[in-house]
Simulated scan of single mutants.
Amino acid sequence: MMLIYSLTMLSLTIILFIMGRILPTLSPDLNKVSPYECGFDPINSARLPFSFRFFLVAILFLIFDLEIAILLILPFLTSSINGTSVGFILLIFLLILTIGLWYEWDNGGLDWVE
């Protein structure tokens, strides 16, 4: 059974590789090789700096996405007898993240326009 599975995988890989080399036509023209930015012609250089606020919002999203994941796992951890200490530690962690969210919100860190 494992031999059949391996041979099927190998043959499918070889067939797809050969098809990928044979089927596409390579005919670059001006539209294909031009830079593309959301349907607009590029106006300025791509090396222009942009606002630090984008980084801040991305980091805050990751942190509070982790908070939501912990909130989903927390009932399962606290329901088991051995997981009560882990649940308590996660509750403290959630409290710290909630205080951080409140601080960012209060200082206007989540606002797009200054």
Rank of each mutant, 00 (worst) to 15 (best):
I92E: 13
I14N: 01
G39W: 12
I22R: 15
L94A: 07
S80P: 10
D41M: 11
V57D: 00
L12T: 12
L12P: 04
L71F: 07
V86Q: 10
L72D: 06
W105E: 03
G109K: 03
I92N: 08
T78L: 13
F88S: 15
I81M: 15
R47N: 08
F88A: 15
I63P: 01
P28F: 08
D106H: 12
A69W: 04
T78Y: 08
Y103V: 03
L71Y: 04
F54A: 01
P28L: 13
I15H: 01
N82Q: 13
L97C: 13
A46Y: 04
S80N: 10
V33H: 02
L90D: 14
L56M: 03
N82M: 12
L7K: 10
A46D: 04
I68E: 03
E37V: 12
L95H: 02
L62V: 02
L23W: 08
G109N: 05
T98D: 06
S45C: 04
I4S: 15
E104L: 05
T8C: 14
I68P: 00
R21I: 05
A58T: 01
T78K: 11
D106C: 05
L7F: 11
F76H: 10
Y36H: 09
D106G: 06
T13S: 06
I59N: 00
Y36N: 12
T84W: 08
I22F: 10
F50S: 05
L30Q: 11
F55V: 00
F55Q: 01
F93N: 04
P42S: 06
L3V: 10
R21V: 05
F55N: 00
P35S: 02
S27N: 11
T25D: 06
N82V: 14
G100E: 14
I73W: 14
A58I: 01
T84C: 04
L7V: 11
L97I: 07
I96N: 04
S27P: 05
L94S: 05
S79Y: 10
F50I: 07
S80I: 10
L3T: 08
F61W: 04
D41L: 13
W102A: 07
L60W: 02
N82Y: 12
L110Q: 01
V57I: 06
E104T: 03
Y5W: 06
I96W: 13
L10S: 10
L7S: 11
L101C: 01
L48A: 01
W105K: 10
P42E: 08
F64I: 01
M19D: 01
S79K: 13
I43L: 14
I59L: 07
S45N: 05
P24D: 03
F17D: 00
F40N: 09
G83K: 13
N82F: 12
N31E: 08
F54Q: 00
T98V: 08
A58F: 02
S51D: 12
K32I: 11
L48T: 03
L12A: 09
V57T: 00
C38F: 10
S11H: 09
L95W: 05
P28R: 04
A58D: 02
P42D: 04
S34K: 03
R21Q: 07
V86N: 15
F76I: 07
I73F: 13
N44F: 07
L74D: 09
I81W: 15
I4Y: 14
I15F: 01
N44D: 12
V113E: 04
N31K: 02
R21N: 09
S27E: 15
I73Q: 13
I92S: 14
V33E: 11
T78A: 14
I92M: 15
